[in-house]
Design a protein around this nucleic acid. Structure first.
Lengths: 145, 145
DNA sequence: TTATATTTAGAGTTTTATATCTAAAAATCT
DNA sequence: AGATTTTTAGATATAAAACTCTAAATATAA
């Protein structure tokens, strides 16, 4: 569904949301080792997220990354948009470029309903909601990779 | 969601289902030009589908491809399985390898519900059902690419 | 039996995604 | 000011996906 870059970005944002505090930035290295992501590759992705103003970065000792806004104001779709773009939410299930409501491919109706579910999920889920799930024990994120 | 190869495969199977008759095989070239798919690339994909026994091929004049079984017995998931494999239907939405029911990622519950919808769609939709839609005018497949 | 139409197969190319390496820039701390 | 830590950036490398080219194999038909 999403590219590896996008997965890495989502994981990183999620990690930052649940580990940074007023005083503490999260360093590239910390995320990369905890989530088992190639460091320099992740670096590019975080730079993207900074450019898209989802993250703030600070250099030097005690530097690192933090969210640019509070986690209840950041939805997952913004992260996807910054990395993979939003094409996925409009693409035909069997790859027809011209497929749309007026000129539907054979699975258009069913598939677009599903796409809407995905889009809705990513539009409504905030980083806040996700970290809450973890604190409640509803989801565990102790694994790596 | 799926690779370009998989899209091509689905389109080709669908084209064959709706154009072949008792007497008529569908040639590689016919599909490639109608659906605007690189011919030799499509050739590899159809070979895969032959190996997976979804298609039968015949060489020589009047040769070409036809379905190995009647279209009501071929579901879309078999085509996906032959080309991309079934991983997509089990992968975590944010790329965690270890994500599962017992050790869920933060979006596991929502995302796996969606995956089930997709899987269900591809498991239940047959080539027959799709061609019917076209004959009923519910879906138009006059576009290329 | 020869010419023709078609699939099959293998090698090669191009493009894109993923990953690595090295060094510069900026901020902090001593 | 100098040493250190961290992000930023650019160049390079590797791998996978997408695509192309050429020729062999096989079947049909004249």
């Amino acid at each position: 569904m999403f590219s590896a870059s996008c997965h890495y970005g989502l994981q990183a944002m999620f990690y930052i949301a649940s580990h940074s505090t007023e005083e503490k930035n999260i360093s590239l290295n910390e995320i990369a080792s905890d989530k088992n992501i190639p460091q320099h590759f992740l670096s590019k992705i975080l730079q993207l997220l900074v450019k898209h103003k989802l993250l703030i970065s600070m250099k030097g000792p005690n530097g690192g990354f933090r969210l640019s806004r509070s986690p209840e104001n950041i939805t997952l779709i913004e992260i996807v948009k910054a990395i993979d773009g939003l094409d996925i939410f409009n693409q035909c299930g069997i790859g027809f470029r011209e497929c749309n409501e007026d000129d539907p491919c054979p699975i258009h109706t069913d598939y677009s309903r599903i796409r809407e579910h995905v889009q809705n999920l990513f539009e409504t889920k905030t980083l806040e909601a996700l970290t809450e799930d973890v604190l409640n024990g509803d989801s565990l994120v102790k694994f790596t990779k």
